[in-house]
Design a protein around this nucleic acid. Structure first.
Lengths: 389, 389
DNA sequence: CTGAAAGCGCTTACAG
DNA sequence: CTGAAAGCGCTTACAG
């Protein structure tokens, strides 16, 4: 391996001069610079990033944990995140929970062993509530609450629920079935005294999963409109078998269903099942997907969908994690931490959203004290062929 | 940061003893071991992997380059690879070409800077033929040829083409349209004198893309059966707009088409377009997808597909890259390289496939001298609802 | 079986 | 503006 030492020898300069040239730091005379450049070329010198990482105590890698990467929602999210992070000088270490035994725990371990600078957590966690807060290294959550002090970004699910409800009410739906995760997740956190009423408006929802708010909102709104509503549970996102089975089941159990709401995959399978049964979409049956990944375009029909804004989500999430990384740097500055923050690091004030990309739910200023509110990203209803005008 | 030194001090032992305990190497008395363990726990010591990586000159990370991760084929592949690699003690650094400006080049750079131990290349490359061979670090190619000496794994596309042809001929197809990449890729390599005849049987195909063989085989077989065949070009895999447009176009240009063959996404959009136009599948129109990712299940109908065996592909590819990494280690052993190969490293002989997972094309023992033959993974035809019995 | 020492390749104060 | 020196946290020969 040809190292800096070799280059220095070849160029007849000192080690530090080579370093300065390589990093384009400080003042080096053009003559020196030139000589070093020539030597580097001649020896085909390539800096060893490991040594640098070691010294800097930084790798410029950010771990992204998703439940499974072979799922349109998460692969789209991962792509968006990678894009954003790459633009800010960070690499993405993607961890598909389903595809790596240790998954989550192993990644947190890597974080703590300084193999990555931070983690974006977009998967379920089975850990005690204080697990994440005790890590003491940069973590940002997407679409879940990991505990106080851990920044959290999610779509404005309450609004998502409202948009769906509006569409269904307006078009005269009479029997809506929605497909979602286990209801037990709806209130998986101990309610902290005070607002244990499950009223949506006051946002007294105690759950790790912000997504729950779209179901609750939908239920609430349809209830007010006296539209029949049924909730069907599907397994975890990586339960591939579950989806077609559920689609089949819905038609069996609810022959008079005239509107189905579910994740992209669920919706796609419902379209398939409906076509198989000759149900007329959208006249007899409307289908709305929640997420709006490419699958809603490529399924049997273009599916009307609540579209999560992947680009904005990725942007926001990336900004936060880089911010958190920056903090850590300053915090430890007194002791051993040296190294420079990447020049791209954002200096935007935390929780101080600017521009139209951010919004609040409109309702619910009073939140449970359990967790800080997430930053909300607006959603949108994109019309396809599966809903009535 | 609490380091080994602190632990040593706390336990009243030497640095090296702590190291031995942490790594569970060599002989340490139970007493010492215990004292160190207690001190580690007390101080909440976490080893800094960066220092280790630095010393070992290894990161146990493998880069996986795909054209885009938000594509069912590549996300399925990536998931399978991550799974395999994780099982062998390696992390996956996934690079979605489309989502990171520098993509390919940047990753090769990282490889050379020792940030990863090897690269699995599953994306297109725009580099000179000797680019990859000159890297001098472990590289394995999936579904393309990167040059002599670079192991290459791909599905048995000739067989894939045959299976499709058989199905179509047997069911009396009369006008087949297939959708694929630019024809210019079919012979993108300079033919090396000798076998420049494009005969399939002798496998005289000069292309970076093994996939081409399925088209050529299909054309050849349909030609022999005197079935009309048209080839339609679609853009790159990440050209999202392209797919629906092509599907539309096919029905316009070829009103009498009665069989369409294309990638999963193409096929899905063709199903959608066919349904929209009321074409009766499979009676009037058969559709066959090439790849068989989950999309073929979740589309408007279960699509009959040539299924690439992701699990085997991932297994083989992982084995090869780890093998290559092992070689590098031995090669450099004289100089600076120390460190132990991961215990999982396979010792299987290269290019010496064992068991039923491997096969050869059956035909074409004589290959062009340009590139070594890839290792072939068998494919399978999985019947769905889009073909006739 | 244990400890003192050297060194992995780089970067950064610090003298000149 | 340039060079000699120390050190990032660990691992591994090498003496004891």
């Amino acid at each position: 391996m040809v190292g800096m030492r070799d280059v220095a020898k070849e160029a007849g300069v000192s080690l530090s001069t080579v370093s300065l040239v390589v990093n384009d730091t400080g003042y080096v005379s053009d003559d020196m610079r030139e000589r070093v450049a020539v030597a580097m070329k001649k020896l085909d010198y390539i800096p060893n990033e490991l040594a640098r990482n070691f010294y800097r105590d930084r790798t410029n890698m950010i771990g992204v944990i998703v439940p499974t990467i072979s799922h349109p929602f998460f692969s789209t999210l991962a792509a968006a995140l990678q894009h954003e992070l790459a633009g800010r000088g960070y690499r993405t270490l993607l961890c598909s929970q389903a595809d790596a035994e240790g998954g989550e725990a192993e990644y947190v371990d890597m974080l703590q062993r300084h193999m990555m600078d931070g983690i974006i957590m977009a998967a379920h966690t089975s850990h005690a509530p204080d697990y994440w807060t005790l890590i003491g290294r940069p973590v940002v959550a997407f679409d879940r609450y990991l505990g106080a002090g851990i920044p959290s970004i999610c779509s404005d699910h309450v609004h998502g629920g409202q948009l769906i409800a509006q569409q269904l009410i307006r078009t005269g739906a009479r029997h809506v079935v929605s497909i979602g995760g286990p209801r037990s997740q709806f209130h998986d956190l101990p309610s902290q005294g005070a607002r244990s009423d499950a009223s949506i408006d006051s946002d007294g929802v105690n759950t790790t999963f912000p997504t729950v708010r779209y179901y609750l909102t939908l239920e609430h709104e349809l209830g007010r409109a006296a539209i029949r509503y049924d909730y069907v549970e599907v397994g975890e996102v990586y339960d591939v078998q579950g989806y077609p089975r559920i689609a089949h089941e819905i038609f069996e159990r609810f022959p008079d269903v005239d509107a189905i709401v579910g994740s992209d995959i669920s919706a796609a399978y419902c379209v398939q099942e409906a076509l198989r049964r000759g149900a007329r979409i959208p006249d007899e049956l409307q289908i709305i997907a929640y997420d709006g990944s490419y699958l809603t375009e490529a399924a049997g029909m273009r599916i009307t969908a609540i579209r999560q804004d992947f680009a904005t989500i990725a942007k926001l999430t990336s900004e936060r994690i880089i911010e958190e990384i920056g903090k850590g740097e300053k915090g430890a500055a007194g002791k051993g931490a040296r190294g420079s923050a990447p020049s791209q690091s954002s200096s935007a004030a935390r929780r101080d959203p600017a521009g139209p990309a951010f919004t609040s739910t409109g309702e619910g200023d009073g939140h449970t004290g359990t967790y800080p509110q997430s930053e909300l990203v607006p959603v949108q209803l994109r019309f396809g062929e599966t809903t009535r005008a």
